[in-house]
């Protein structure tokens, strides 16, 4: 069955697994390590990472990047996007890559704008 052939290398070919099952365990170990690092950072909160960078704390940028890495490996290896035709891959991934950053940009910019209005203005309310 040609549909069930798996691409067995991750990290751009750095690690190549012998079977699909081995790859699954390998990805689990990788995801667990990333989660452990996230939790450790969340508990320790190193002082140096609390500085702001591009509007967010450095530590929050790290959390977001690690989350996207985890999301990539869940979709690519657990959901087998890696083994799908590139057309199918793109119909799924491209709309999300366009729409989500768009939504994020608009609402976060508006959110900080309203914060500034509340801070500088003489009104404050909760909506």
């Amino acid at each position: 069955m040609a549909e069930h052939l798996h691409k067995l290398e991750i990290f751009r070919g750095l690690i190549k697994f012998k079977s699909n099952q081995q790859k699954i365990w390998g990805v689990l170990i990788f995801l667990s390590i990333v989660t452990a690092v996230e939790v450790a950072l969340g508990i320790l909160k190193p002082e140096i990472l609390l500085n702001k960078f591009l509007g967010l704390k450095l530590i929050n940028w790290m959390f977001i990047i690690m989350t996207i890495i985890k999301a990539y490996y869940i979709t690519w290896d657990f959901m087998h996007i890696r083994d799908e035709k590139s057309f199918l891959k793109n119909t799924i991934v491209v709309p999300l890559l366009i729409l989500i950053p768009f939504l994020l940009f608009i609402l976060l910019v508006e959110g900080s704008y309203i914060f500034d209005v509340m801070l500088g203005g003489f009104k404050s309310w909760n909506f």
């Binding site: 994020l104 609402l107 976060l108 508006e110 959110g111 900080s112 309203i114 914060f115 509340m118």
Partner: peptide, 8 residues
């Protein structure tokens, strides 16, 4: 995120 940025 919007609500959070609004009450940052």
């Amino acid at each position: 995120g919007f609500s959070r940025f609004k009450n940052i």
